[in-house]
């Protein structure tokens, strides 16, 4: 059969790399064929999600931030300073987390989706017009964030003026100065050329961009056990591949940025400088518990336990 797989990024970005590896594995180990649909070719994020729910698409990659409108618990990944920045710790967490592998799947199932995996896409960094060393530097800074209540709350707590803006307008708005900041992983800042219109990149370590791959549930349940195994193996292979692919990707992307624009400053905040940002995390966590759905508390507690386990291992 031909299976269709849509994702939210371009072919050469992290989600695209994952999808290509998945396709390669499936096609090598079965008679099925995978067609890939990158960002925008079948509509916006919410559209491809609905198409996966209705079975037009068999697979979809959507980040929990967008899924939050359907599954409020998924927004937990926006609580700042929850996830560690250490790549190995992260990988082990995503692989073994009970929250991800046991608590989330039923929530996705309620929406007609089989959660196949979640994986990290890289440390989220701030790009700004002025240098940032603490929340004071974000005062009055119009900062573009996705329209997610928790992100908005985070940046408000950081002292910025969170400003919603459709993605297509971000580059222009940074250039003319309507907004003075935005956040994204390094590879994305590089591939979307965001660095051309910004002067400072600050690593505050507040988050790691997370994304999830799902299948349409009826489709998945209707598959033979053999096919389900092929899919599970392909997902595992793609997961290992993408973790490996990302090793050093952040540094590489930052180097490319530095090379293309030598005047840019890239600053990693010290633990001390991060502390005032970290102090705001509690308020966002509270907000999550309020809007994160019935299982918000359970998910948050389990995630924290899983993270501890990952740190110990």
């Amino acid at each position: 059969d031909t299976w269709r797989y849509a994702f939210e990024e371009a072919m050469d970005e992290v989600q695209g790399k994952f999808a290509q590896k998945f396709k390669e594995e499936i096609e090598a180990n079965s008679d099925h064929e995978i067609q890939l649909f990158p960002f925008g070719t079948l509509g916006e994020s919410a559209d491809t999600m609905e198409q996966a729910q209705s079975g037009i698409l068999q697979f979809v990659d959507q980040s929990p931030g967008f899924t939050g409108a359907l599954i409020p618990e998924a927004q937990v990944f926006f609580v700042p300073y929850l996830l560690p920045q250490d790549e190995e710790q992260l990988a082990s967490f995503f692989k073994n987390s009970k929250a991800i592998n046991e608590l989330f799947p039923p929530l996705y199932a309620e929406q007609g989706l089989e959660l196949l995996t979640m994986f990290p896409e890289g440390e989220v960094m701030m790009t700004t017009a002025e240098a940032v060393t603490g929340p004071d530097d974000l005062d009055e800074v119009k900062f573009r964030v996705m329209t997610n209540p928790l992100l908005v709350e985070s940046y408000r707590a950081f002292g910025a003026t969170p400003t919603p803006l459709p993605w297509g307008e971000v580059y222009g708005a940074l250039q003319t100065g309507i907004i003075q900041g935005q956040e994204n992983p390094a590879f994305f800042i590089e591939s979307t050329k965001m660095y051309e219109v910004t002067d400072h990149i600050t690593r505050t370590g507040h988050n790691n961009f997370t994304t999830a791959v799902m299948a349409n549930k009826d489709f998945y349940d209707g598959l033979s056990e053999e096919d389900q195994t092929v899919i599970a193996d392909a997902i595992d292979a793609a997961f290992d591949y993408i973790i490996d692919y990302q090793k050093g990707l952040t540094e590489e992307s930052l180097e490319k940025i530095k090379e293309a624009k030598p005047s840019i400053t890239i600053t990693t905040l010290s633990d001390e400088e991060r502390q005032p940002f970290m102090d705001t995390a509690d308020s966002v966590e509270q907000e999550f518990l309020e809007i994160g759905g019935d299982q918000a508390q359970e998910i948050l507690d389990q995630l924290k336990a899983d993270l501890e386990a990952a740190a110990d291992s």
Binding site: A46, E50, Q53, S54, G68, A69, L70, Q111, T147, N148, P149, P164
Partner: peptide, 17 residues
């Protein structure tokens, strides 16, 4: 009606899509 049954909310307005 599919939208209504999925209960998707608009992120900012927090009303059903």
């Amino acid at each position: 009606s599919a939208q209504a049954s999925r209960g998707r909310l608009l992120p900012a307005l927090q009303i059903p899509v």
